[in-house]
Write a protein that binds this DNA or RNA. Structure first.
Length: 532
DNA sequence: ATAGGGTTAG
């Protein structure tokens, strides 16, 4: 194009950029745009907006805004499309406050009139941050302002409601849109099918599929992938295979996502070798190239089967396949080593493979795997020193990390350290959850501090955290071990009243007690309670 | 008339 004389028009360059965007080749588009600027090829607001969009997709909203400044400086007028792009960029960069500010200023200074895309973008951003009710309010507001929601707006809201597990509300919106004459598309249905699959509502799924059929909306590869994944996760591997067979019959081509979902299904059943066969035969035969997620599934499968060496073989095979491991890959193998008691290899793997890899961002999962693994192997000092390493690497520990640490410390004879960590959680802006409370209660019980345990049990509910079945069972066993059978009985009644029941471990603890103290009246009363 | 922005799966 650059060598053509006369030069192709700005339209044709815009089309080329758009094609690259469609293929998600954002950095290629950006370098082409730069090339155009250097060679003084005319640009306009359309090509400029496309470049701004590319920067946003590359997570460089800062560059996007400096290009916006350049755009205005060169005398072009950013329009509603330009600003919608920037609003989406800010939201996707997790900066909703700036997005909000941009939106209000655009309206205040009458720079643009928000359109249906503006509202849809913001509704999506709100929903993805779990502000569903605000999103619905905005949804009703735009309608009132004369900006009619369209298929994409409804699909966005439906998808978000499904992800918040409000599937029936989402189905209500489907009904509402069709009544208004706004036709759902395959994306609308895919979101709903996913939402229903999450609840194993197979009958409703089939009803939606036949509804699609009546409306002449063909299921896409996406649709089938949702089904393969859902069946695989439920262990219904034959159904998953049937879906793939069906989609091929209908002329759809399964892709890497389809087969990865199938492989995950096999791995969850422990049939990792079958998953490997899918990769080595079916995918190869069909010319489908596996990606890192495909390998992660296999690596995870082998680790869960305690075949860590096979997992490491696959890990070492990655560069040959042109793939780079992700933090998920590393975390999986690290956990595999600990799971099989190979803590020396785990620590070498962490030191040599993970710490030295500059491209890797260690996360809270890494931290909790390490802390848990070290504590379970009685390396408390090392665990604490790793914790410090992670902190100085800039990691912000979440409540799960503290839970792991509290549990590990208390199980290795450091109850007071665990207690002080627990008590200082509010100072770190963290609230204990039901697991954290339960671990601390267990710690107190283990050291015979039943009063502290009971006090905390009462306190958690007062703090708005309801005990669950694990909490009750933990405290009841604590009373058993400290010969407080009457207290155990009272708590057992309370637990049953709340719809929980004694678990296997509590039951066997009681049976052991009964065996050794056949005539203890308190225990006999407990047995009566327990057996009825 | 031809070009840019918002929604779905592992």
């Amino acid at each position: 194009m650059l060598h053509r004389k006369p030069l192709p028009s700005v339209y044709q360059f815009a089309q080329l950029l758009a094609a690259l965007v469609k293929m998600k080749r954002y950095s290629v588009a950006v370098s082409l745009f730069r090339d155009m600027c250097v060679k003084s090829i005319p640009v306009n607001i359309v090509t400029l907006s496309t470049a701004i969009n590319c920067f946003c997709h590359l997570n460089r909203v800062d560059y996007a805004f400096s290009l916006l400044a350049g755009t205005i400086k060169r005398g072009f007028h950013p329009d509603v499309v330009t600003y919608n792009t920037l609003i989406r960029g800010l939201i996707s960069q997790d900066n909703p406050a700036e997005a909000q500010l941009l939106f209000t200023n655009l309206i205040r200074f009458k720079l643009i009139q928000p359109d249906v895309v503006t509202y849809t973008t913001i509704i999506n951003g709100l929903c993805k941050r779990a502000h569903a009710s605000t999103a619905v309010t905005l949804f009703r507001y735009m309608d009132k302002k004369g900006c009619k929601p369209n298929t994409v707006t409804y699909s966005t809201l439906i998808d978000c409601l499904c992800k918040l597990r409000l599937v029936d509300q989402a189905l209500g919106l489907l009904h509402e849109m069709t009544k208004k004459g706004i036709t759902p598309n395959v994306i609308t249905y895919n979101s709903l099918i996913q939402g229903l699959c999450d609840f194993n509502r197979w009958q409703d799924v089939n009803q939606l599929l036949s509804e699609m059929n009546t409306r002449n909306i063909s299921p896409s590869v996406h649709t089938f992938n949702i089904l393969v994944d859902a069946y695989g996760k439920e262990g219904m591997i034959n159904d998953a295979e049937d879906v793939i067979e069906f989609m091929i019959q209908r002329g759809q081509h399964p892709d890497v996502v389809t087969y990865s979902a199938l492989m995950d299904g096999y791995c969850l059943r422990g049939e990792v070798d079958k998953a490997l066969a899918v990769l080595e035969t079916t995918m190869k035969k069909r010319g489908i190239v596996p990606n890192i997620r495909t390998y992660n599934i296999l690596i995870n499968g082998y680790c869960k089967k305690l075949k860590v060496d096979r997992a490491v073989d696959l890990f070492q095979q990655l560069p040959r396949e042109g793939l780079s491991p992700t933090i998920y890959t590393y975390n999986t193998i690290l956990q595999g080593y600990f799971l099989t008691g190979r803590h020396v290899e785990a620590r070498n793997f962490f030191d040599e493979k993970m710490m030295l890899n500059k491209a890797l961002t260690l996360n809270n999962i890494t931290c909790s795997i390490l802390l848990n693994g070290l504590c379970q192997n009685r390396f408390v000092v090392e665990a604490l020193s790793f914790f410090d390493t992670m902190l100085s690497a800039g990691l912000i520990p979440d409540i799960c990390i503290y839970g792991t640490l509290i549990d590990g410390l208390s199980k290795n004879g450091h109850l007071e350290k665990a207690r002080s960590l627990f008590d200082n959680l509010p100072l770190k802006g963290l609230r204990p959850n039901v697991k954290t409370y339960t671990m601390m209660i267990q710690a107190y019980c283990h050291d015979g501090l039943l009063n502290d345990a009971n006090e905390l049990f009462l306190k958690m509910e007062a703090n708005g955290c309801l005990p669950n079945d694990v909490t009750y069972n933990t405290l009841i066993r604590g009373f058993f071990h400290n010969k407080k059978y009457n207290e155990a009985g009272v708590l057992m009644d309370e637990m049953c009243a709340r719809g929980f029941s004694a678990d296997a471990s509590t039951a066997s603890a009681l049976l052991d007690l009964l065996k050794s103290q056949e005539q203890n009246p308190a225990l006999l009363a407990l047995r009566k309670k327990f057996l009825t």
